[in-house]
Design a protein around this nucleic acid. Structure first.
Lengths: 143, 143
DNA sequence: TTGAATAGGTATTTACAATACCCATTAGCA
DNA sequence: TGCTAATGGGTATTGTAAATACCTATTCAA
């Protein structure tokens, strides 16, 4: 069972934004903080923005801000979003009709149930619960 | 969130064995039934056998049989086994110590909890619950 | 003792996540 | 009204690990 690094990084970005919700953070700043390419990170930002989780502003002084209070953003929601289009097993995918077992398969329902349990458990927490405590300015983060 | 095809096929193989638990099924037969390469499938068999879930016998008339009654094999158990060594996120892996957030990370615990919820939900079912009903001999499975 | 089957290592292929690059667009500011 | 800083978004490339294939040794039954 594996989440994509897309999701992994998305979560870390949100954790950082939640630590200082009033400030707009640029992709460049986030990329440096997470030791990640700015371009890749920008893709995740765009995805989150399109989903309405964050708001972005272009131009000087621009960047990304949480669209809602961190306490109103549930973790399950975030992961559902970032993992969307990633099927748990092949036959859950868009074209997953080639299964020879098909209708007689009693496994599918149980996998779906377990997936729901996974997400529901995460929904018990919000972004506010995992926000990064802001670092003291003089503390250097070792890479 | 994704399971490997290794796990996917492993489950399907077990479903089939559970449908006819007294019979030893050869890898060749299973491979044909699942439209899968015999070699690849053999790897999964070996893994399951080493874990004690099934027993294999070489020589003529050999094959694989469930080592325990299907009703005693829980699905969570199977998936834990087949997915072993597959970390949910990078920092859960063996060398996942390079995280800049590290000790201040309050996400890890929640992910672990959700993963446990996923497996516990699956543990509510056993192999017997998802055993394939045996196909009538005259019915051809379309590929 | 022969043939059918698993055991298991190694090599190869392939798919896709991850990354990099480029240019358009937008907004603030002097 | 330019200039600069920032995102938007497409496309191309790379890298890695899963998936597959192949080969040979070993084991067992008849």
């Amino acid at each position: 069972m594996r989440l994509t690094s897309f999701t992994d990084f998305g979560l870390r970005m949100l954790m950082r934004m939640a630590a200082d919700p009033s400030r707009a953070i640029s992709t460049a700043e986030l990329a440096e903080a997470l030791c990640l390419s700015r371009n890749h990170l920008a893709k995740i930002i765009q995805h989150l923005a399109r989903a309405g989780l964050i708001e972005t502003r272009r131009g000087g002084g621009g960047g990304a801000v949480l669209a809602r209070p961190a306490a109103e953003i549930r973790l399950g929601q975030v992961i559902r979003l970032l993992e969307e289009g990633q099927p748990l097993v092949e036959c859950f995918g868009a074209d997953g009709g080639a299964c020879s077992i098909d209708t007689r398969c009693r496994l599918k329902a149980r996998l779906r149930s377990a997936e729901a349990a996974f997400l529901m458990d995460l929904d018990r927490s919000t972004l506010a619960d995992i926000a990064l405590p802001p670092l003291p300015k003089n503390l250097v983060v070792s890479q």
